[in-house]
């Protein structure tokens, strides 16, 4: 029993994905800790989303093994929920918010299982968890970007999974949504669930996450935020693309203000 809870929810070995002849992700190893909130960070085009999609089998992988709770992903599908980036959806599709959440139950319902009161109640509860219960009957395209993102999170919640994979959940959402989503993720963590999210905002990493996986085509660093989220690792992943102001803000002690003679230049 104790052993099971120690099994890594997700273990990837030697994963390579390529578009044409250029690898987008090359030989990536990642081990996600149970009960942790892990951020995948890296510069644009570093293969963050690609990594996630290849793990989920949305795009084919060239090589590599993926283990979910020590077994093949196929056999563990029910324990994995995915929240895609918003752009991947047809917004004019004839479907209401509550229908989208119920799509999270389709796998469980099978081809012909009827949607019963208990399923509707569950979907409604998932909606209220993300603060969207008032919008259940709206067509999905009538929501703001942040609201749409919350509905996708509710759909993942409806699955009742143990491992949650999110692709840029905070991209282009308003502050209220960001707060609502992080509350839900934290409550999932409190229930012992595991969360892995592609994240782009470095300044919120220490607040939101306890583990990081830094990647730029190949893995750069992996571990707890304290161990792996270092100035050195970020410099290696992002090269010169990081604003120095951001680094000062993230690592105030490690990076003391430079002596006055150097600081006099234009900011």
């Amino acid at each position: 029993m104790n052993d099971l809870s120690q099994t890594a929810p997700l273990k990837v070995r030697g994963l390579t994905v390529s578009y044409g002849a250029t690898p987008a992700v090359f030989s990536a190893d990642i081990t996600v800790q149970p009960g942790a909130m892990t951020a995948i960070i890296g510069p644009n085009g570093a293969g963050k989303s690609t990594l996630l999609k290849a793990v989920l089998g949305i795009i084919p992988r060239l090589s590599g093994q993926v283990e979910v709770y020590g077994e093949s992903f196929d056999s563990q599908r029910a324990r994995v929920a995915y929240v895609p980036q918003r752009a991947s959806v047809d917004w004019d599709f004839p479907t209401r918010v509550i229908d989208v959440v119920q799509m999270g139950l389709y796998r469980q319902l099978g081809l012909l299982g009827r949607v019963r009161g208990q399923h509707r109640a569950l979907a409604q509860e998932c909606l209220s968890r993300v603060g969207m219960s008032d919008f259940a009957a709206r067509q999905i395209g009538q929501l703001s970007g942040g609201q749409q993102q919350r509905v996708f999170l509710a759909r993942a919640l409806a699955q009742g999974a143990d491992l949650y994979l999110l692709d840029e959940p905070f991209a282009g959402v308003d502050a209220a949504t960001e707060k609502a989503i992080i509350e839900v993720l934290k409550s999932l963590k409190a229930e012992g669930k595991t969360i892995l999210a592609v994240h782009h905002d470095l300044s919120t990493v220490p607040d939101y996450f306890d583990h990081v996986f830094i990647i730029n085509k190949t893995p750069v660093a992996e571990g707890t935020v304290q161990e792996a989220f270092t100035q050195d690792a970020l410099q290696r992943a992002y090269g010169g693309r990081l604003a120095s102001g951001l680094l000062d803000q993230l690592f105030p002690v490690a990076n003391p203000a430079p002596p006055a003679s150097f600081g006099a230049g234009p900011a």
Binding site: I58, R77, V80, S88, L112
Partner: peptide
């Protein structure tokens, strides 16, 4: 029989793939 798979794929093919 196929209404749910067809609906899921039409709305969000990537999510459908994660659902097997």
């Amino acid at each position: 029989i196929l209404r749910r798979p067809m609906t899921l794929v039409s709305f969000d093919a990537e999510y459908a793939a994660t659902q097997g």
